[in-house]
Amino acid sequence: MEKMLTLDQLKKKSDKRLIGLDSVFKLVIEKLIERCYARGVWIVITQGLRTYAEQDALYAQGRNGDKRPKVTKARGGYSNHNFGFAADFALLLRDGRTVSWDTLKDDDKDSLPDWSEVVEEAKKLGLEWGGDWRTFKDMPHLQMVFGLSTADFRAGKRPSQAQLNAVLSRLNKMDMEDEEMTAEEKAAFKALQKRVIVLESANKLTKVPAWAEQACINAKAVGALDTANDGSFDFYRMVTILDRAGVFKRGVVAQ
């Protein structure tokens, strides 16, 4: 039976696996879950931080007479999972319980495999995908290691603050791009645009009033205005009201 999960409900399913991850990397993974959800693809994190002992146990699988398939080539201390900069994911089916590693599944019926959509979003966020590795491809694996090797991590090296800040800056930019007006806000904005056109045609001023200059600049920056010249007093007043309401700070203009 298909079940509709809210984003918060979906994210809670990964909470335990996010414990112990580097704080910035954790934010990136949370953003990945959000962006995939927006595309109609549900994912859960199945592996996060591993201890050396847990890594050694995984390494032993498929070796020394164990007939199970091998799942890793890394011993304890030789996986980025051991340092909080790697995570594995799986698709969550629409029953809200079953996970899948089917790379061809397309639950959102957009003709693009859900797995491919996750990888696409992951790369936009700056994550490295284990499916790109030349040997021992690890399809569910994602990491962000900032050019550091596991030897570097074992030696105590960590990403610089500048590197971490660059990731945070990317996330902030994506947040602004992702933020959209609601249907009600779009309808109201369209009505205001029509009103602005009427006002613009009457009582034109020869110069933009000083008090409206910044509002006009902000409106032009998001494409709400082509030009601020030859507007009326009411036109500039309306643009200023919209700007103070934060409309031009959203980075989205209703089409």
Rank of each mutant, 00 (worst) to 15 (best):
V239L: 15
T135S: 13
V24Y: 04
A202T: 12
S23P: 05
V198E: 09
A215Y: 08
N172R: 14
M1T: 11
E128C: 00
Q214Y: 02
K70N: 11
K26A: 09
A215E: 12
W129S: 12
G84C: 15
A57V: 08
N229Q: 12
F248E: 02
W115T: 14
A212K: 04
M174E: 09
D66K: 01
A221E: 05
Q9P: 04
V222F: 02
S23L: 13
Y236I: 11
R63F: 07
T227K: 13
V145G: 00
S160V: 02
R250L: 12
P209V: 03
Q214D: 03
A155H: 00
T98N: 10
K204A: 05
L164P: 05
F25E: 03
L104V: 12
A57N: 13
H141K: 06
F235S: 15
L142D: 02
K67C: 10
E128Y: 08
M4S: 05
K12H: 10
K190G: 00
D243T: 08
K3F: 09
L112R: 15
C216V: 05
S14Q: 11
M181G: 06
A151H: 13
G126V: 04
T6E: 01
S160I: 02
G84P: 14
D22A: 09
A210P: 01
V44H: 08
E30T: 13
A162C: 00
G131C: 04
A210H: 06
Q143S: 12
M144A: 04
K11S: 12
K123V: 08
E2K: 06
W133E: 11
K249I: 01
E2Q: 10
I217A: 07
V208L: 07
V196D: 07
G147Y: 05
T135Q: 05
L112M: 12
A188E: 10
V119D: 03
D243F: 01
F85S: 15
R170I: 11
G48F: 11
L32C: 10
D102Q: 13
F89C: 12
M176G: 05
D102P: 06
R195M: 15
R75H: 07
G156N: 05
A254P: 06
T227S: 15
Q55H: 01
I19W: 07
Q47M: 14
W129A: 14
F25Y: 15
Y236M: 11
D107F: 09
T72P: 03
E2V: 12
Q161L: 13
I19S: 11
D108P: 01
R17D: 12
A202F: 08
F85E: 14
G126T: 08
L142E: 00
T98C: 15
K207W: 00
L10N: 12
V239T: 09
P113L: 08
T72K: 04
F85W: 13
F235A: 08
Y52C: 06
R97D: 03
K249V: 01
V119T: 02
T182R: 07
Q161H: 09
K249W: 01
D226F: 06
L104F: 09
A166L: 15
D88E: 05
Y37I: 08
L168Y: 06
K157T: 07
F25P: 01
P69I: 14
G246H: 01
M181R: 04
R68V: 09
A221N: 06
P113T: 10
